[in-house]
Lab assay of single mutants.
Amino acid sequence: GATAVSEWTEYKTADGKTYYYNNRTLESTWEKPQELK
């Protein structure tokens, strides 16, 4: 079936920290989303 993983994109900030952005909800988070675990 369809999965929600594709909504999240992993980015890195200029200082090398990783964060996650959800293209559907426009939410961003420092925590790894449940969908990616």
Rank of each mutant, 00 (worst) to 15 (best):
S6P: 12
D15M: 04
A4I: 12
K37I: 14
P33R: 01
N22A: 00
E31V: 11
W8K: 01
T18Q: 04
W8F: 02
V5W: 10
A2K: 13
E35V: 04
E10F: 03
Y21M: 08
T3K: 10
A14N: 08
Y21S: 03
R24D: 06
Q34F: 10
Y21E: 05
K12V: 14
P33N: 03
G1E: 13
Y21F: 14
E10T: 07
Y20S: 00
T18I: 14
L36G: 09
E10D: 02
S28H: 12
K32F: 05
T18G: 02
S28F: 15
T13K: 02
Y21G: 02
E7M: 05
K32L: 07
G16R: 01
A4V: 15
T9V: 15
R24I: 15
E35P: 04
R24T: 11
P33Y: 03
T9H: 10
E27D: 04
T3M: 13
G1F: 13
N22Q: 00
V5R: 10
T29E: 03
S6I: 08
N22L: 01
N23K: 12
T3P: 13
A4Q: 14
S28E: 11
R24L: 14
Y20L: 01
S28R: 12
T25G: 00
T25F: 01
A4D: 12
A2V: 13
Y21C: 09
K17D: 08
T29H: 07
T25I: 02
S6D: 11
T9I: 13
E10K: 04
R24S: 10
T25A: 01
L36T: 07
K32W: 04
T3F: 09
T3Y: 05
T9P: 00
N23R: 09
D15I: 03
Y21K: 08
G16H: 02
T25R: 01
A2P: 10
D15Y: 06
G16A: 02
K12H: 08
T13N: 10
W8H: 00
R24V: 15
G1T: 14
A2R: 13
N22G: 00
Q34L: 14
A2I: 12
T25Q: 01
T3A: 13
Q34S: 12
E31N: 06
S28V: 15
L26P: 01
K37L: 15
E10S: 04
P33L: 02
E7R: 03
K37W: 12
T9Q: 10
A2L: 13
K32G: 03
E7P: 06
E10N: 02
E31T: 09
A4C: 15
E27A: 04
K17Q: 08
E10R: 03
K37A: 15
A4E: 11
S6E: 10
K37S: 15
A4L: 12
T18M: 08
K17G: 05
Y21A: 03
